[in-house]
C-alpha cells in the first residue's frame, strides 16, 4: 500500500466522529426540508378550508410541525457548534 493511501486511511479513522456528525446534520436537514414541504401543503389546505373544526385541526398540525422543525434546527445548530469546537486548535 502506498504511503499517501495509508495516510488517507489514518485521516479517515481520526475523522470518524466528525463524519458521523456531518452525516447527522445532512439527515436532519433532509427531514427538515420534507417537513417544510409538508407545512406548505398544509398551509394551502388551511387557506381553502371553510369548516372551523377542520381549520382547527389543520392549525394544530401546523403547530406540531413548526415545533418539530424548531427542534430540528436547534439540533443542527448544536451539532455545528460541536464541530466548530472540535476544529479549534488545541492549546
Amino acid at each position: 500500500m502506498k504511503a499517501n493511501k495509508l495516510l488517507e486511511r489514518v485521516k479517515q479513522f481520526l475523522d470518524a466522529d466528525r463524519n458521523t456528525q456531518l452525516d447527522k446534520i445532512r439527515s436532519i436537514r433532509k427531514v427538515l426540508k420534507e417537513l417544510k414541504e409538508k407545512e406548505r401543503n398544509l398551509r394551502d389546505k388551511l387557506e381553502d378550508e371553510k369548516d372551523s373544526e377542520a381549520r382547527e385541526s389543520l392549525q394544530l398540525r401546523l403547530d406540531v410541525i413548526y415545533a418539530q422543525r424548531k427542534k430540528g434546527v436547534d439540533r443542527v445548530q448544536e451539532l455545528k457548534e460541536a464541530l466548530k469546537e472540535e476544529a479549534k486548535p488545541k492549546d
Binding site: 439527515s27 427531514v31 394544530l60 406540531v64 415545533a67 422543525r69 427542534k71 439540533r75
Partner: peptide, 15 residues
C-alpha cells in the same frame, strides 16, 4: 434522526 425531532411529553402538553 427523526427520533430527535419527536416532541416530548412536556412539549405535547404545551401545544
Amino acid at each position: 434522526v427523526e427520533d430527535s425531532l419527536h416532541l416530548d411529553e412536556k412539549e405535547l402538553t404545551e401545544l
